[in-house]
Simulated scan of single mutants.
Amino acid sequence: MPHDAAEGAPRSPASPQVRVAWGVLAALLLIWLVFETAKYGGWVIVAALAGVVVPDLSFLAGLTGPHEHGRMPRRAVPLYNLLHRPVVAVVVMLACLVPDSSDIAVPLFNLGLAWLVHIAADRALGFGLRAADGRLR
């Protein structure tokens, strides 16, 4: 995908229908997340806020060193791709089913739920996984 620095960051070539589907999913998950955080409060709110931020912590791995505009540094790509896979967030949500995790079950579930909201919103906005060279796939 050619990219001109004046255009801004390139976006995913996903079809408009796919992006709308991701947007609808993001909206539904966000409604569920708001309901859960309002219901439980306390550490659940902290976990939800962390879940929204966690996937983008991978950018910290690429803060130093040269890279082109619109391209993530190569060393940050594997972590970014791992943290932006829905299956990882679902595994975090399912971890609340581990026996003897009752104290952290609800915050852990909401961490994963917020993480899924982040991923779905990214995909709806056209930000998907990265290729090995740091460009959007």
Rank of each mutant, 00 (worst) to 15 (best):
A132K: 15
V53K: 00
P13V: 03
R19E: 14
R75V: 14
H84N: 10
G128R: 00
A38L: 14
T64N: 14
A76S: 13
G126A: 01
L113P: 04
V52P: 08
L83S: 02
A120L: 01
R74C: 08
L113H: 05
I45Q: 13
R75S: 14
W115C: 00
L28A: 15
M1K: 00
R135N: 13
N81E: 12
C96W: 06
L33V: 07
A6C: 04
L136C: 01
V46T: 13
L82C: 07
D122H: 06
A61V: 15
P66A: 15
L25H: 00
A26W: 13
L57A: 05
E7H: 02
L25A: 14
L29V: 14
H3P: 07
P10F: 03
V20M: 15
A89C: 02
P99D: 04
F109I: 02
F59T: 12
V106N: 07
E36A: 12
L97E: 00
A21V: 11
A124T: 06
M72Q: 13
V87C: 01
Y40H: 15
V91P: 11
F59H: 15
A14H: 05
G51F: 09
G134P: 01
V92P: 02
L79P: 05
P107L: 00
A38I: 09
A27V: 09
D133P: 03
P73Y: 04
A114R: 01
P107C: 01
L28R: 11
S15I: 00
S102I: 12
L30H: 08
D56W: 08
S102E: 15
P10I: 04
A89K: 00
G41M: 07
A47Y: 11
P55A: 02
P73Q: 05
G70T: 01
